[in-house]
């Protein structure tokens, strides 16, 4: 019974947050872009007007027209279709890489905060070591070992981002651990898993989610960067990075290819970052009235 009311108020709270998000032009913009990003990511295959990998050499490097909204590339593929389908790669990466990284980071962070100081210190040392690798060098090394694929990119992103989540969670848990309500739970004999899940996790997840939403553009950027270097998604699979790469060679005569892949990249980056910042402002209890 009490559970149900709990969920109910949780739902109204989510609705309130969304309403507040949409109340400013920038917030509304970010909500629209982020929603569009995921909708296109899921439906891209079906709404694309052309087959994104079908070659048509006769129609190469055409400018934007009513038939090809964003023109065609050097082998005559429809750029608009490639962009829509490429969004799938971007959104798939963003969701999987960030959620795997989050899960690992939260788990390790909580463990670090609740075990002996020696384990805590060793884990911190590992986190910091991993974090100190330059992402690009690390990525090149990993790709040299395992070959370029979308799973390799996910692995690279997970390994290079989970330490920052783990550190964030650890600090949050450490400060929560000495709160009186946690001590009150210990006094009444609550077991550690329950304290972690019911009393610490809900109070930690907010700030972590906000950092995560700001990390999503980073992930998309890494994929685009690696694909641009030819180390990401295998051609001919379309992704924003491969489209950029294709267009880059012809930037002088046919700039629309680079623009049509670059613009969504910039827009989603700005939208996710704004969303994260707005969320932080709305959810931070100190800023809440």
């Amino acid at each position: 019974m009490a559970q149900r009311t709990n969920k109910h108020t949780g739902l109204t709270r989510v609705r309130n947050v969304i309403r507040k998000l949409c109340s400013t032009p920038l917030g509304l913009f970010s909500v629209i872009i982020v929603t569009a990003f995921f909708v296109v990511g899921i439906t891209g295959d079906w709404i694309a007007p052309y087959d994104p990998i079908k070659l048509d050499i006769r129609a190469k490097l055409q400018g934007p027209s009513s038939a090809h909204w964003l023109g065609t590339d050097q082998v005559g593929r429809d750029v608009f279709s490639r962009l829509l389908v490429g969004t799938k790669v971007a959104s798939y990466l963003a969701v999987t890489a960030v959620s795997i990284s989050l899960a690992i980071g939260i788990f390790l962070g909580m463990i670090a905060a609740f075990t002996s100081r020696w384990i805590d210190w060793s884990m911190l040392l590992i986190f910091d070591t991993v974090r100190s690798f330059p992402t690009l060098m690390f990525a090149l090394a990993v790709i040299a070992l395992f070959g370029p694929s979308i799973n390799t990119i996910i692995g690279i992103v997970v390994i290079s981002t989970f330490p920052s989540y783990a550190r964030l969670v650890r600090t949050q848990v450490l400060s929560l651990r000495s709160m009186e309500y946690i001590e009150a739970q210990r006094a009444m004999g609550t077991r550690l898993p329950r304290i972690l899940m019911r009393h610490i996790f809900p109070n930690v997840i907010g700030p972590v989610m906000i950092v995560a939403s700001m990390d999503i553009p980073l992930v998309i950027g890494v994929e685009a960067g690696l694909s641009f270097l030819g180390l990401g998604v295998r051609p001919p699979t379309p992704s924003w990075g491969t489209i950029l790469n294709d267009g880059f060679s012809f930037i002088r005569n046919t700039p629309w290819i680079v623009i049509s892949a670059g613009l969504p990249l910039i827009l989603t980056t700005v939208a996710f970052t704004t969303l994260g910042e707005r969320l932080r402002d709305i959810l931070d209890p100190k800023l809440r009235r």
């Binding site: 709990n6 108020t9 709160m179 009186e180 309500y181 001590e183 006094a187 809900p202 109070n203």
Partner: peptide, 23 residues
Amino acid sequence: RNEMSLMMQDPIGSLNPRMPVGT
């Protein structure tokens, strides 16, 4: 622990901020 209870000093701080009072 069921037979003795501890009431913490800070009335609001000793309650989980994300939990309704009834819970």
